[in-house]
Amino acid sequence: MGAASAPLIELRGISKHFGSGDTRVDALRGVSIAIEPATVVGLLGPSGSGKSTLLNVIGCITEPSEGWMKLDGEVVYDGRWLRRNLPRLRLEKIGFIFQFHNLLPFLTAVENVAAVLDLAGERRAAALARAEELLDYLQVGRRKHAKPAKLSGGEAQRVAIARALANRPRIVLADEPTAALDSERAGIVMDLLRKVAIERQTAIVVVTHDEKIYGRLDRIYRLRDGVMQAVEERAPAAP
């Protein structure tokens, strides 16, 4: 863990409210966090606590109402977005892992991974080579030509992780990545994420309700009513 390193994700006083007047909802209130490289953190909290909003804010999907945010050394929000092309920002800096893998059903496993590189403008041959390398790294290379419908839940989630890592992002956001998996496969996926975080010096943020994976997190942020209630530092076992 690189606690002494500069944070890859740094939020200061981030607030987000929806609506106004009587219908105003404060989803986030003055949230400040800092997440260093080689760290897997968990965002925990009951439904409506602001976890998804916070994930969307870090993912540059939802614009905060106020605050300051720095991702991978670049200040991206300071009262307003400082980048016009947010899709490009996501493509360059952030990898996403979804609850239900969200692989594109019309692409094979290797094409799903290569798609991210293709969107970034990488040449096809290089994109496919990198995708195959990642699938091999995540031990699902033998299924590279399978369509998502032919993959098991665990295989699909590994392919999704490979896709999230394809563009060498320093930040990975995972939304309930183990919710659709049994405890054994959930453990394997979390171990994989920890391995990725350590080997690739990545900051991984996991939104989860799954208590079984708490033991594999370096830090837990607990949210309630949009307010950061507690931060727990943990010492997970090595993957």
Binding site: G59, P87, R88, L104, A115
Partner: peptide, 16 residues
């Protein structure tokens, strides 16, 4: 729609 949302999320520009 879900695939389109995924494409947008992973950074696909509108022209794609």
């Amino acid at each position: 729609l879900r695939e389109i949302a995924t494409l947008k999320l992973i950074g696909a520009p509108n022209r794609v």
